[in-house]
């Protein structure tokens, strides 16, 4: 694994408030529609279907009446120290563009799936089928998102095409493309979440909401001790939720920030 985290002037990141998430799945639907993920014949077969964004159900493991659940949406974590790109034999995935989004170029991918084995978050999916849309549904394909053929690996791109569009809008308006306003570039899931549980922006820009949210004492990242430096943060005031973000020993205290 690459041990040094790659740094950029702009770092696009997401802060997901787990306490606000109701598990409705609107973000997954928005993601699927935005990123041209074709419906499959049997979506119940989880070994063959794919989601760029998946909502996990967490349980505190206690019996009623102490039982509690939480929902945790999991996009690609856009790791600063990426285990996936460092194993790709053909540089189909890399992290080299300003903004720190891990790129995935399907036309370059040979489908070896090393990256899937390397990703500790299961954020990468293999395309088992050629995409087929029911007649008429192909009319709503997003033009700026490339449709992937079968045999390649795909993953969440933080709706990268929306970043491209935001940059173009900024250029025409004569603004700096690396100093976008908060909200000028957001992902489809962020836009769709009916409860406002997802915040998106530049983690290094003080004017962006995520800058402050990610520094909250309730913020945590998934499997933080692996050193992958994800650009996706989660928020929860419930300790048992934060505790599920990593593998702790039974008697080990949950780390407290700040």
């Amino acid at each position: 694994m690459a041990s040094v985290s790659k740094e950029f002037k702009v770092k696009w990141g997401m802060v997901i408030d787990v306490d606000k998430c109701t598990g409705c799945g609107a973000c997954m639907v928005a993601c699927q529609a935005e990123n041209n993920i074709a419906p499959v014949t049997d979506a119940s077969d989880k070994r063959r279907s794919l989601n760029w964004l998946l909502v996990y159900e967490l349980s505190n493991g206690k019996a009623y009446p102490e039982h509690e659940v939480a929902y945790l949406p999991r996009p690609c974590q856009q790791c600063g120290s990426y285990p996936c790109a460092s194993v790709c034999p053909v540089v189909a995935t890399d992290k080299n563009e300003e903004g720190g989004i891990v790129s995935q170029v399907p036309s370059r991918c040979i489908g070896c799936r090393y990256c899937m084995a390397a990703c500790p978050y299961h954020a990468r999916y293999f395309n088992w089928f050629d995409p087929v849309w029911p007649s008429g549904m192909d009319k709503i394909i997003t033009p700026d998102v490339s449709v992937r053929p079968r045999g390649v690996v795909e993953k969440c791109s933080f709706c990268h095409h929306r970043f491209m569009q935001a940059k173009d809008r900024a250029r025409v308006a004569g603004k700096d493309v690396y100093d976008l306003e908060d909200g000028e570039y957001i992902t489809a899931c962020t836009e769709t979440c009916p409860n406002g549980a997802i915040a998106f922006g530049d983690l290094l820009n003080e004017k962006h909401r995520v800058y402050h949210l990610s520094r909250s004492k309730y913020a945590f990242r998934l499997l933080e001790r692996l050193g992958t430096e994800p650009q996706v943060y989660y928020l929860s005031k419930r300790e048992w939720v934060r505790r599920q973000g990593d593998n702790y020993l039974q008697n080990e205290p949950t780390p407290v920030k700040g």
Binding site: E97, I101, D144
Partner: peptide, 12 residues
Amino acid sequence: TNANNACYTCHK
């Protein structure tokens, strides 16, 4: 310039 050679500069 911003003309770097990162994959995502041009690819989608």
